[in-house]
Amino acid sequence: MSKLWFDVAHLLAGGMLVLSFALLYQDRIAAVINVFALQAVALSLSVAWQALVQGAPHLMVTAAIALIVKGFVIPTALHHIIRRMQIHREVEEVIGSGLTMLTGLGLVALSILLVQPVGEVSIYVREDLAFALAVILLGLLMMITRRNAVTQVVGFMSLENGLVLAATGAKGMPLVVEISVAFSILIAFIVFGIFVFRIRERFDTVDVRALDRFRGERRDVS
């Protein structure tokens, strides 16, 4: 296949990676959601391109799901949630965005190094995989460094974008469509859960207040 095809695929995947970085330095939640929607559109284009290159029309379903669910429905729902729940409009960070960006750069370097051995299998798959892994790790980083549940979920969805990118890059992988549907259901559950249970803060060992309540020192249930 001509080299141009792969260049386009890499352009789209690279675009997703750039948007992952853009997610890291946003300081308003509404902007985070918008950037995420943009990343979902980039993902959908990338998947559609893969469908074309690989001659796999069923991947178009995945592309359509990414565009409709993650590009429009979920961002709209999240905007609705932050309005209704009157969440702080500013992103609450655990560590500063400068340090987060530097860590992010380190993670990209790490993912390039990690997928090095793939080159012996297929040189084109390697670069796709490096992009995907970098998006995944940046999503993880975002989940760790944000305190608000909505931004945390956006981090998870960005991680999942990386997974779908990796799965569609693997030629002829079965069950990709089914799995992308399963992921959409999972995400719908999360967003639904935030709304129903009004979860604002995440609960982990970084947050000292949560620690006090959470090490087996609980109240009675009766």
Binding site: V118, V121, S122, V125, L129, A132, L133, I136, L163, A166, A167, A170, K171, G172, M173
Partner: peptide, 11 residues
């Protein structure tokens, strides 16, 4: 992600 990598190897 690990599952995808296994598929790539086995493919």
């Amino acid at each position: 992600f690990g599952t995808i990598l296994i598929y790539l190897v086995a493919q």
